[in-house]
Design a protein around this nucleic acid. Structure first.
Length: 131
RNA sequence: UCAGCAGGCCGUUCCAUCGCUUCCCGCUUUAUACGGGGGGGAGGAAAGUCCGGGCAGCACAGGGCAUCACGCUUCCUAACAGGAAGAUACCUGUGAGGGUAUGGAGAGCGGAGAAGAAAAUAACCGCCCCGGCAAUCCGGGGUAAGGGUGAGAAGGUGAGGUAAGAGCUCACCGGUCCGUUUGGCGACAAACGGAGCCGUCCGCCCCGUGAGCUGUAAGGCCAUGUAUAUUUCGGGUUUUCUGAUAAUUCAGAAAGGCAGGGUUGCCCGCCCUGGUAUUCUGCUCUGCAGGAUAACCGGAAGGGGUAGGUCGCAAGAGGCAAUUGGCAACAAUUGUCCCAGAUAAAUGAUGGAAAUCCCUUUUGGGAUACAGAACCCGGCUUACAGGCCUGCUGAUUUU
RNA sequence: UGUCCUGUGGUGUAAUUGGCAACACGUCUGACUCUGGAUCAGAAGAGUCCAGGUUCGACCCCUGGCAGGACAA
């Protein structure tokens, strides 16, 4: 259950380009989430790409650390998101960008990410039929 | 004991649970998909990209000029602007030490703002001589000892000498050059003898050594797709020789011209690639003239698609240990080990111990630097909590 | 990841074989005007991104940092 496989990550250059050019944006500090409905050929309901700006976080050490923290937190808390998506048989691509310009610790990032996903699920449910 | 100098080294460790990446096994399985088991998984600077190589592609007969880099000596090294051991001069620290410079030219040419008389054929003030009857003064000449300017002013001190002075002469001192001897592989050092030869800095200049260009997004293969689409304009189409043949034909070779490219920049020269074909008309028909159209080359106009996989790519100027040679950098021999390989990019999270340091105070609380591989090595430079080892210096105390 | 370039008042630019850091706009003060603009007169504002070195002397030359930017799928 708490695995994080390659097919759960978004690796295609084309898909990422499509995502950034026409994705829906959901903002919850310190994250910016861009998501888009996808074809749905892979076995997992979501594919994710994590980004940290080199403009905001100068040192590569800190950038790597933030990415690892986000990935770890995502791995732990993606269950609820998957549940909500599989219930309605949807597949999405997600880009998760870190927009703060200082480093936070694991507890805060974990909490904020959970809040973000709750927000996403709540926003998604009533608008389901329209989409 | 305190303060410091030089050189070298380390730069957190262990356990549990859950993950990521890569390789192996092939237990399960149609299947190396998913499970399962096992091994490996950031640094001394991985950084800056400042030098030098390896490797790859392209290019390459050669010559001249220019450009750039380096520049005391000997050695080390694959190589270097790196390193080791030394030489000379200057600066700096009480000291252990530290820092900087050093190819050649006694040549020649150019420059040195402002200031100053003058920045190198030196006369502003001063000093001395002569002339203007005399005189504060004016004119001519001599003089580099004194003054002031400047970063720098024609070696320094003393004596002789002189109208006044001056290496003009002499003694001593400093430097330079020449010669000889000794020591050293050498840079150079020391000693002796000789020459009145004597301002500083920079550039041009001369000599030696080195430098082809581009970088793994190099480059190779596979897959997909395809535009060498198409339109238009311009260039372009020779000669000689040899053999065969009925031949104006065919085959081969050479040269020239044309187009493009290369040779780091320029010139000469050279090299590479392409094509050098077909046909019509006229005439004087082994030939000449004119035209047309291809191949090919160049300019302009002119849509889209793919952007994946794999090799390169992890056994190397490799690490570790011992011995030997060397003052050392380093080298040789033997033994032993296999030690990251991602690609929207792995090396992480949580909890608990330990170690070191700090604050408080006996309950504890906090901190652990600088920083993240991207083709690979050798250096340099920069950042860095804390700690260890070796040698040495200064101060104080005790014996 | 690789290859390059730039850094001067608040802003945009000069400074040429190394020799007093200049100009325009802007800012401030005064004059003119009923007031503002325009105009005129005057003033302030930098020590050249930072740290060393060469030199008598450095924006300029050399070395090392820092910051910003460009190009190469």
């Amino acid at each position: 259950m708490e695995k994080f496989r390659k097919s759960e990550r978004l690796c295609s250059r084309k898909s990422i380009g499509r995502l950034f050019s026409g994705g829906n944006i959901l903002f919850h500090y310190p994250f910016k989430m861009i998501w888009l409905e996808s074809a749905g050929e892979n076995p997992f309901p979501a594919r994710i790409v994590i980004g940290v700006s080199g403009k905001k976080i100068k040192r590569a050490v800190n950038r790597n650390r933030i990415k690892r923290l986000i990935r770890e937190s995502y791995r732990a808390s993606k269950g609820r998101l998957y549940e909500s998506l599989t219930l309605r048989n949807r597949h999405i691509d997600i880009a998760l960008l870190y927009v703060a310009d200082n480093v936070y610790d694991y507890d805060l990032i974990d909490m904020k990410l959970k809040e973000l996903f709750n927000k996403f699920i709540q926003n998604d449910e009533p608008g389901k039929e329209i989409l």
